[in-house]
């Protein structure tokens, strides 16, 4: 009980201080006005629509990245020649933040869903790839050998030994990738909203609140929504990880 009080202490104090300090100004958002704004934005459907747009983009991009990065990572992790030859490309592109590619992607794909999906896919691609490679390389060599000595064929070995052995690392890569993807879509929508007049998404909604309607409560609602979605995405992949890897000690 005492520990719970301790944990609640700072959040409650901070919220109170925020409410009191901000009540002097009419425009400054306060916890109470933010809650009202959230209710209004949910009722009008703006918030759910914005979130749904962004989430759809994230899922499309994330799925694209996974479909590309997992097989490539498995090949790079298990065939040394392929890894050696592709590693320079990976190391060259990995440090380029997805958001830095935004200007080029706007040039190539415009400002719609396609561009958003491309940004997300790029952002999620490298964490998934790197973790898949590492996971495959870290497999106990005797596990593959054990299956080999039992006469298990090469393709079956891939499916029944390599894949499950690398699965925890792959899922960790996906978890990191999904988090990065969510950040990337917010950044992209914000930047597109700021410069190119695109449409849709929670990130752009925030920018519209900033630039046109000067609605600070709306901005804070969006920020909180972004945080909650990030938390939910992370938790759901953590849950998937725990479910898919029942063999590892907790």
């Amino acid at each position: 009980m005492n520990r719970l009080a301790l944990k609640l202490l700072l959040p409650i104090l901070l919220l109170l201080a925020w409410e009191l300090l901000a009540s002097g100004s009419a425009r400054a958002p306060r916890p109470s006005t933010v809650v009202q704004a959230a209710a209004a934005m949910t009722a009008s459907g703006d918030l759910p629509t914005g979130l749904a747009t962004s989430l759809l983009r994230v899922f499309l991009g994330f799925a694209t990245a996974s479909v590309l990065a997992v097989p490539l990572g498995i090949v790079m992790g298990s065939v040394a020649v392929v890894e050696r030859n592709l590693d320079p490309l990976v190391e060259s592109f990995r440090p380029i933040a997805a958001i830095a590619l935004l200007p080029l992607i706007i040039l190539w794909l415009g400002t719609g869903t396609q561009a958003a999906v491309a940004i997300v896919a790029y952002a999620a691609f490298f964490p998934i790839l790197i973790n898949t490679i590492a996971g495959v390389k870290r497999i106990e060599p005797n596990l593959m050998r054990a299956a080999y000595t039992m006469g298990v064929g090469a393709l079956t070995r891939m499916r029944v030994v390599l894949l499950p052995a690398a699965l925890p690392a792959i899922l960790i890569g996906m978890r990191i990738g999904l988090g990065v993807a969510w950040t990337a879509i917010i950044a992209a929508e914000l930047a597109v909203g700021a410069k190119a007049g695109g449409q849709g998404g929670i990130g752009q909604m925030m920018f519209v609140f900033y630039a046109y309607s000067v609605e600070l409560n709306g901005i804070v609602v969006c920020m909180v929504a972004v945080g909650i979605v990030a938390l939910l995405l992370d938790r759901s992949l953590r849950f998937a990880l725990a479910r898919a890897v029942p063999w590892s000690a907790p």
Binding site: L6, I186, G203, F207, V220, C222, M223, V226, G227, L231
Partner: peptide
């Protein structure tokens, strides 16, 4: 004690990406 005290504020703030602060910070 310090861990308990800071756990919730950190867990509440951390999921909000730095980038999502941009519009508010612009203000």
């Amino acid at each position: 004690t310090v861990g308990d005290l800071l756990e919730w504020p950190v867990e509440l703030l951390r999921p909000i990406a730095g980038i999502a602060w941009i519009p508010l910070a612009l203000f």
